[in-house]
């Protein structure tokens, strides 16, 4: 069963869409779906206030939930998603894919702040840009993204992958300042340029720069040892994302290790 929610009007305040997920809509009639409640600022309103609901019960219909319209004021799309597929035919608000542990979210436009924060599994694709703190932690939490795959085909804001612990986060274009700050582990790949303070306080993990060579802080040291096996494993996986990452296995690398102010076992990999 697939459900299509078409935006009727842009809300005046921010709308929290947590709980509107494919699994929650399974077996519900159109009327029941319309009566589901969401918060709009301090109000609790029916979903039908914002969306026209259409169901497709055809056997061949994919088990997915489609949002149609510009949803930049709709937050927490795909919040704690465990399975199923969500497609946003436009932009999404903050916290898209946050805390998801399975399934897939595909945003055809851009996304706001904190996309994929504390994501633990599944796949989040954003065709446009993401705001600050993507793949990072919820405010006050110690660990950021800890699994799954985040693919941003546009640019990303500041503090991308702050405190990230596991998983793969890929940005096709540029990223802002403090990329991979306090990174615990995981894999990050950047197709464009990165801002200032790359890897500030990173402990472990790999950050791959396919585009411009990164500015490396003095708390990183050049790596002299050969790491070609790990690079081939990583490069072959990243190459599957295409775009600037295609052909990575054939390219050589130069690595820096750090941040020595923290654990010092992270690596910045510049692709030559």
């Amino acid at each position: 069963m697939s459900v299509r929610l078409t935006l009727k009007r842009v809300p005046a305040l921010r709308v929290d869409l947590r709980g509107v997920a494919p699994a929650a809509l399974q077996g519900l009639s159109t009327a029941r779906i319309e009566r589901l409640t969401v918060t709009h600022g301090m109000q609790t309103l029916a979903l039908a206030e914002f969306f026209a609901v259409a169901r497709d019960d055809a056997d061949e219909a994919a088990d997915e939930l489609v949002f149609e319209g510009e949803l930049a004021r709709f937050d927490r799309i795909g919040w704690q998603l465990t399975d199923g597929r969500i497609v946003v035919e436009g932009s999404a608000g903050d916290y898209v894919g946050a805390c998801m542990s399975g399934g897939e979210v595909h945003v055809r436009g851009s996304a706001g702040l904190l996309a994929a924060c504390e994501m633990a599994g599944g796949k989040l694709r954003i065709d446009g840009d993401v705001g600050d703190y993507a793949a990072s932690s919820l405010p006050g939490s110690m660990d950021g993204m800890r699994g799954g795959t985040l693919i941003v085909r546009g640019a990303a804001g500041d503090r991308f992958a702050d405190r990230m612990r596991r998983g793969t986060a890929v940005v096709f274009d540029d990223v802002g300042d403090f990329l991979a700050s306090r990174l615990v582990a995981g894999t990050i790949a950047i197709g464009g340029r990165a801002g200032a303070h790359i890897g500030y306080g990173m402990r472990r993990g790999s950050v791959v720069f396919v585009g411009a060579a990164p500015g490396v802080a003095p708390t990183f040291v050049p790596a002299l040892g050969d790491a070609s096996v790990a690079w081939q494993l990583l490069a072959r996986d990243l190459a599957s994302h295409g775009g600037p990452f295609a052909g990575l296995p054939a390219r050589r690398i130069r690595r820096h290790l750090g941040d020595l102010s923290s654990d010092g076992k992270g690596e910045l990999i510049a692709v030559l």
């Binding site: 040892g225 050969d226 790491a227 790990a230 494993l233 990583l234 996986d237």
Partner: peptide
Amino acid sequence: ISKVINGVRYWRIPVMDGE
């Protein structure tokens, strides 16, 4: 260093010729 790539965990152990 542990590295999880495409769902598979690998261990990278530093040795004298690299890792």
